[in-house]
């Protein structure tokens, strides 16, 4: 199923920035500029944002508003970046976070 809502019965067509390319774990991916990184990843079917440091358990979006830190990733080399509240920009380098304690 297409993850993006093409047209919503109440909200109409989602208002989005321009389509840009970024890298996710080394591969090219696409999303809309200004949307949270997590939205672009969810649209691409990515659920896992990180693996916990000790038990290596997968984590993804939980609150989507920047509170729980479940969604942190490595963005442009910086660890523990909350993907749900960090706007996507062209050329960003986004990586699944492994083996780093989340904040």
């Amino acid at each position: 199923m297409e993850k993006r809502i093409g047209e919503h019965p109440i909200l109409g067509k989602p208002q989005k920035g321009k389509l840009v390319t970024f890298t996710f774990d080394g591969a090219a991916a696409q999303g809309y500029e200004g949307e949270p990184i997590s939205a672009a990843l969810a649209a691409a079917g990515v659920s896992v944002h990180r693996y916990t440091a000790k038990a290596h358990k997968p984590r993804g979006i939980f609150c989507a508003i920047g509170r729980c830190t479940d969604c942190v990733m490595v963005v442009d080399g910086e660890v523990n970046v909350r993907a749900c509240v960090t706007p996507l920009r062209a050329g960003m380098d986004v990586k699944t976070q492994r083996g780093v304690s989340a904040v």
């Binding site: 199923m1 949307e35 939205a39 984590r59 993804g60």
Partner: peptide, 25 residues
Amino acid sequence: WDLPGVIGAGAAQTMMNLHGVRPGE
């Protein structure tokens, strides 16, 4: 409860109503 795909209701709303992405099928 901590598996990806277990989300808060607010998160579902944020994803679909603010960002236009379905939280799941």
